[in-house]
Design a protein around this nucleic acid. Sequence first.
RNA 1: GGUUCUGUAGCUCAGUGGUAGAGCGUGUGCUUGAUAAGCGCAGGGUCGGCGGUCCGAGUUCGCCCAGAACCA
Length: 947
Amino acid sequence: MNDANDYKSTVNLPQTAFPMQANLAKREPSFLAKWQGEDLYARVMSATAGATPYYFVDGPPYANGDIHIGHAVNKVLKDIVVKSARLNGHHAPFVPGWDCHGLPIELQVEKKFGKVGEKLDAAAFRAECRQYALEQIDRQRVDFQRLGILADWHKPYLTMQPAYEAEQLRVLARIADNGHVVRGFKPVHWCLDCGSSLAEAEVEYQDKQSAAIDVGFEAADPVALARLFNVEVEGPIRLVIWTTTPWTLPANQAIAVNADLDYALVRFANAGLLVLAAELVDDAARRYGDSASVLGTVKGLELRRHAIHARHPLKPATVPVISGEHVTLEAGTGLVHTAPAHGVDDYLVGKQNHLPVSSPLTSSGKFSDEEPVVGGLHVRKVDEPILAALRETGALVRHAVITHSYPHCWRHKTPLIFRATPQWFVSMEAAGLRAAALEAIDATRWIPAWGRERIRGMIADRPDWCISRQRTWGVPLALFVHKVTQEKHPRTGDLLRVVADKVQAEGLEAWFGSQVYDWLPHSEADDYDKCTDTLDVWFDSGSAHQCSFVSTNPGVLDEHGLAPLADMYLEGSDQHRGWFHSSLLTCVAMRQRSPYKAVLTHGFTVDEQGRKMSKSLGNVVAPQQVTKTLGADVLRLWVSASDYSGEIAISDNLLKRMADAYRRIRNTARYLLGNLDGFDPATDAVAPGEMLLIDRWAVSQAAQLQAEIRQAYADAQFHLVYQKLHNYCVTDLGGLYLDVLKDRLYTTAAKSLARRSAQTALLHIAEAMVRWITPVLSFTADEIWQLLPGDRSASVFAQRWYELPKLNLAEDGVDWPLLVATRVAVKKTLEDLRAAGTIGSGLNAEVSIYADTDLASALGAPGEELRFWFITSGARLAPLSAKPTDASEHELSSGEKIWVHANASQNARCERCWHQVADVGASAAYPGLCGRCVSNVHGAGEARRVI
RNA sequence: GGUUCUGUAGCUCAGUGGUAGAGCGUGUGCUUGAUAAGCGCAGGGUCGGCGGUCCGAGUUCGCCCAGAACCA
């Protein structure tokens, strides 16, 4: 051994097949292929069979369009939840779902085939919708799988599966049996282009220009009205209303006032005698550009009590003055035009006052032919004729154009109208649904906690749920409605179940293609109509708590055919109004309890500046692009690192940072694997009691961290998992333990206790760590798993948390925190020498620590091994009295002080271990080696006790 | 406009009323036996703003500002 480099062959350097370059984008697909080839999901399910189940219900994405980053975040979070449940020892199925019915898919099919009836009949149209949805699902499935989501991709639940559709009808049957389904005749958001009422979620608000008009309704008896104000006047008196929807005037049934407000009879110089709220007179005069003098005032209550009537401005009729609390002074005149068919407040106040809910506006959007002024015209074309008619009779007091926020169809982007139509509702009150739902909310865990208040407010305030839609592609609202009473059949629940069985066997056309007499006896059939509506799609997905189990996993149903309670629902925060909401209502209505034990919500994905993603801003990050470049594990790490309770920021820059963090974790694993090369736990593992003290300490630290990580998973605080894990890799391992360990791993004899102890600790740490990262870095975890020593035939995804040995460090008598603090002080001191050019590597230096007796005795625990702690060639403790003047002072966090002095070693450098110690060359046979190395290579080997 | 939230270093996040933290990034040095790696050191914050409670407030209360989701 005359060449120093030859000693390298005697050093135990790390060796592993685990590549430093992950090359995830290229290599992850081969893992996917392996997982699919071995049917990993089924393997994990059977491996965990018998364990306590954890039921997750997947909120179904809509089967239209490719997945975007929001879908990716959502599904990855779910995957993390389910995988961590398995680590907790649960049998946790993950059945993915898709939401398949509804308007967006109809519109896609319309693009190709035109509207229903143009090229395709309804049945063929539905078949095309089904086909389209399947194609979309295939695309989305591939993308989800690429993200490493471990789920039953071969057996998803689809809301368009006959078994699902049929069960949905049975859910409706139970809800009807429980008395929650009622018929209403209410104004609903109605899209003229859809020809249908819309769900709340389908309405969006945009600015719209509207005609804002002040219209004077002429008092039927001006003399009596004037007398009420205690004045005598000549000529007509007009009660002035303000509206931004002139087209609703033909449906006017009343004028509403607030009983508590003061109303004034006012003489305007130009407009004549008008009645309006006293407080708004000045405002009105300004708007009209007119001068006003108040002749008298009276409470709104008096106007109502004296049965004041006014002439309808567009037709020969009179309408009453009524009162309602919804009338305020915020805008207008304090008198409110009331058309119960076209406004919710109007409808409610009209109901109290027994006003008819009729309107001359038909479902086609045209007014009935016999209607004056607007007869036969489309609702969008009547503003001008109405204004002209009002002008002619002097009823138009003022006309302006305003821009205001107005409901629009989310699809067509066109303004909606309110229109009263016959609709079916799940009533919030008829059978106590609201109260029961509120109770169910209280029994649920909400993550974050404010979710409870959020949904509570919504349930407390919401109106009845309109579940009927006038659509083609949906589950039929399979009701039989009496032709005269308009009531549903008394045996509705039973009939729904009959329909359900046939739908399950034959599909939806079994209903759509049928006649009343196919279902009802001839004695009844003539009296009933088949309801042609479909169910709101929110009812589809909202029934997943029952239907998804029935269609994919009927084995877990109870003796009544009811599904188990889901452990968790996890969706974006908008779903408080959406899926959490609809699921809660259907489940409570069906079985008086919440569908979920816990609900987790996450925020939306935005760019670095907190802006929404949009094509025009060019800040869209596509998951497909990320997996193709950085890899799914980097994307998953980013998801886990983000605090999902608020907005989640993403950008190429942020992803690059995550890629850096990924590399650090990966390299830490690589170091562990590299130093476990050739280690056989069955024969080489060291019992905890035999291990070196620092190795015991390291294992104990890992156990402490594992407790924190498990807690973070349990609390669904995944970003803390990431923070703690990364911090551990960098600080505890890289910056300390692994750095210190190098000397021992590399230079002591391969099979020595000193080295085996270190390897045992590294294996414990690796066993624990691979599980910590499995829910997040799934590809990497499996890669590590395959290379860890020991039997790895069972999947890492079927493992439970690793049980680290329980160690009582108190027995060891080493004050590790003190040693850590001292190490910091030493590093700082060494830096001074380095800056001065005195030393390069720490192994060029020797350090002396000066401390008082107690401290020195505590620091003395490692004895001669202290130099390995500092990674210096020498380290000694000395009394304070011997402290040289140029020693550097350091205050420890305990408040105690130590002084450190460092100097360059004058000793020769051992060619093998690089320490500069006095006995280098002491052995004539091995002139380049220190005594330690001579012993380790040619002798019995050195003994280590602490470090 | 209403409801529910969010606002701590350039970034991602900790922070139980008692002298502002970590990692990343940045700068800088060492190492070349984790090497398209690793280690050290350094700089960086009126904790969104203003007021109140308290001996003391990032932490409690009120108001305001900015942003988000949902609702109207």
